[in-house]
Simulated scan of single mutants.
Amino acid sequence: MNTQNTQTYSGFVAIVGPTNAGKSTLLNQIMGRKVSIVSHKVQTTRTNLRAVKMVGTRQLIFVDTPGVFVPKRRLDRAMVGAAMTAISDADAVLLIMDAQKGITQTIRDLVEKIHGHKNLFVALNKVDAIKKQDLLPIVAELSQMADWREIFMISALKNDGVDGMLDALAAVMPASPYMFDASDAVDVPDNLYLSELTREKIYKYIHQELPYHINVLTERVDVDADGVLDIYQKIAVQNDAHKKIVIGRGGEQLKQIGTAARHDIQDQWGVNARLHLFVRVEPDWENKAENYEDQGLEFTK
């Protein structure tokens, strides 16, 4: 029996970086579907969404961590804690940074936290937006900051340089049985994924700081005789003023959010769906453990 080609490799890759560096865009590009919220606002990735990508016979399990920032609230602390846990558990760490912004203090602080990892990579994202000669001093300084296995030049949005990066990451995955089926997939409960899609639309259409004080919970999903999904979601806000903003004049804002989310859900799953959104005032939702557990976060006092 020939066992030469039976060895399998599987491991975790933690994607880390400042808010809005392009982490979620990169993961969505790798998977060819929406995995994590893409938004112009910061702190939009709350949970450690796992995405499984096969590169030949090697399995990469991506953990998209919340953007690292200074925590101010309990939810913030849970998000940053999730990011740090993902880093310590990973077989490789991929730092994503915005080439246009260069090496900021946030990057310096983050490199200080991760520089001891044995498989450390950095991806300079959005390199298509700046001149090549402007990249040279950034690369030179990065090289002095940590023992990187490789520094990649990529455009996550345009999918430039991503395949080579995946090959390099796959090369350091440990010999291991596959931890997931040998196919590309997202390891996130469907209800949570549905909530994420709706929350993305709230970020898109509501431009105040309000979205960071909002929770979306998929309460149930029913299927009728024709195979149409009926999705019931609760949008929890902290006060009546926030409720009015989400609903909008004559309900127009909520209708816009619901229509956009429903279209995304139908496009992602190839199904027909009806989305039922209910806005409820829950002033203390950030202090309830179950709201963190629903999002895969640890509730800390």
Score class of each variant (00 low, 15 high):
170 A>D: 14
139 V>R: 12
149 R>I: 12
152 F>N: 04
174 P>M: 11
138 I>P: 01
152 F>T: 02
152 F>W: 08
142 L>M: 10
174 P>D: 10
167 D>A: 12
150 E>V: 03
138 I>C: 02
148 W>E: 04
176 S>W: 09
147 D>C: 01
139 V>A: 08
148 W>V: 06
143 S>L: 06
137 P>G: 05
146 A>V: 11
172 V>H: 04
158 K>W: 04
169 L>N: 08
158 K>A: 12
145 M>A: 03
172 V>K: 09
166 L>H: 05
137 P>H: 06
157 L>N: 09
166 L>C: 07
138 I>H: 03
164 G>L: 07
157 L>Y: 07
175 A>V: 15
151 I>G: 02
172 V>W: 09
142 L>K: 14
164 G>Q: 09
138 I>Q: 13
163 D>Q: 14
151 I>E: 09
175 A>G: 01
170 A>S: 10
174 P>L: 10
164 G>P: 00
137 P>C: 04
145 M>R: 02
145 M>P: 00
160 D>G: 00
150 E>P: 00
171 A>K: 03
151 I>T: 14
161 G>S: 13
140 A>R: 14
176 S>I: 06
159 N>M: 02
156 A>T: 13
164 G>H: 03
137 P>N: 09
150 E>L: 07
152 F>C: 04
175 A>I: 13
171 A>V: 03
165 M>S: 08
157 L>F: 08
152 F>K: 06
173 M>K: 05
142 L>E: 08
172 V>D: 12
151 I>H: 08
146 A>T: 13
174 P>S: 10
161 G>C: 09
153 M>F: 15
154 I>F: 02
151 I>P: 03
141 E>G: 05
172 V>P: 00
147 D>Q: 14
166 L>N: 03
142 L>Y: 11
148 W>P: 00
151 I>V: 15
174 P>I: 13
163 D>E: 15
148 W>Y: 15
162 V>P: 00
176 S>K: 11
161 G>F: 11
161 G>W: 13
151 I>W: 12
165 M>H: 01
159 N>T: 01
165 M>N: 02
164 G>S: 03
159 N>Y: 03
140 A>V: 05
149 R>A: 01
172 V>N: 07
143 S>Y: 08
171 A>I: 00
143 S>W: 07
140 A>H: 14
137 P>Q: 07
138 I>T: 13
165 M>L: 15
170 A>T: 08
158 K>G: 01
172 V>A: 08
142 L>C: 05
156 A>N: 08
141 E>V: 01
152 F>Q: 09
143 S>R: 15
142 L>Q: 11
138 I>K: 07
157 L>K: 13
143 S>V: 05
148 W>N: 10
155 S>Q: 11
152 F>A: 07
148 W>D: 02
141 E>A: 02
168 A>K: 10
145 M>H: 02
138 I>M: 07
152 F>E: 05
165 M>T: 10
172 V>Q: 12
164 G>A: 04
176 S>V: 02
168 A>N: 05
176 S>H: 15
140 A>N: 06
169 L>I: 11
159 N>F: 05
152 F>D: 12
167 D>V: 06
155 S>G: 03
173 M>F: 06
137 P>L: 05
154 I>V: 15
175 A>K: 15
166 L>A: 10
150 E>S: 06
155 S>P: 00
159 N>E: 01
161 G>T: 14
150 E>H: 13
138 I>S: 06
141 E>Y: 01
158 K>I: 04
140 A>F: 07
170 A>W: 00
153 M>S: 08
150 E>C: 05
